[in-house]
Amino acid sequence: MFHDKAGYFFELFIGGLTKGSIYALIALGYTMVYGIIELINFAHGEIYMIGAFTALITAAALTAFGVTHPLVLVSVSGITAVVYASAYGYTLEKVAYKPLRNAPRLSPLISAIGMSIFLQNFVLLAQTSNYIPFPNLIPPLPFLEPVSHIMGTVDFIILCTTAVIMILLTFLIRKTRIGTAMRATAQDKTMARLLGIDVDRIISFTFITGSALAAVGGVMVGSKMGQINFYIGFIAGIKAFTAAVLGGIGSIPGAVLGGLILGWTESFGTGYLTSDYEDVFAFSLLVLILIFKPSGLLGRNTTPKV
């Protein structure tokens, strides 16, 4: 009996961790863009959805051409999704946000909502509103057989991939030249320009990086859920936004922490209380954090001394 209880707990724990790391992956895009240009990129969820669709279409095309090797399928469709979504993210910024750089703050926000609606409907027209089966890109790993009731192959891959991506991202931002330039741009754009940093390029790079992470998330969620439609970006986007706010928008460790806490809250809430209120748990958390710590768990609300 005790063993079963512990097993159930562990199952929920892993489920929350998997879910949370996907939220974190998407939340990173929100928080990085906010950190640089103080804009909530509401179309970010759509980039994630486009990533998932790109992988689906690429995999279908490859299969039609007789490519069946799982490793080739996964890597080619994954990379295509990342490249395609990055191109969308880059274009999005150039078309919808850059012209409004000096406009009142509400304008780019409205433009973001507009782009979100536009991209959703664009995919709706191209792919219909039906759920489309997502190909099973990831073959089962034999060594996970004994624990498959707790952690399936897809969960395992999701956890490993997000862990590697977050380590790489941390390295990129903390240790590289462009990462330092990104942090500098986030703190003081004029000063960054006075040092010769091309702020427009840094902003583009931020959108590309965030979009690439979202695409990876999209491919993995597609694999886990087994079906996607044009609307998946909206809910995932709002959840990831919640995660970003929870951790403190603008803070990269905050996005990861917020994602994980959100994942666990949903997983344990549905597992121990009721499965009907998954979204209620997520958004109650958002309300609580906005009341008691509006800057988020790891957010900064101090103004630097000049």
């Binding site: 030249r177 330092t180 942090r183 500098a184 703190q187 003081d188 004029t190 000063m191 006075l194 630097p304």
Partner: peptide, 20 residues
Amino acid sequence: GRRIFPFLTVMENLSLGAFL
């Protein structure tokens, strides 16, 4: 007002001086 990047280390501030 000097405009030091407050959340970058002294070393990082200096290295950005040599950015180009």
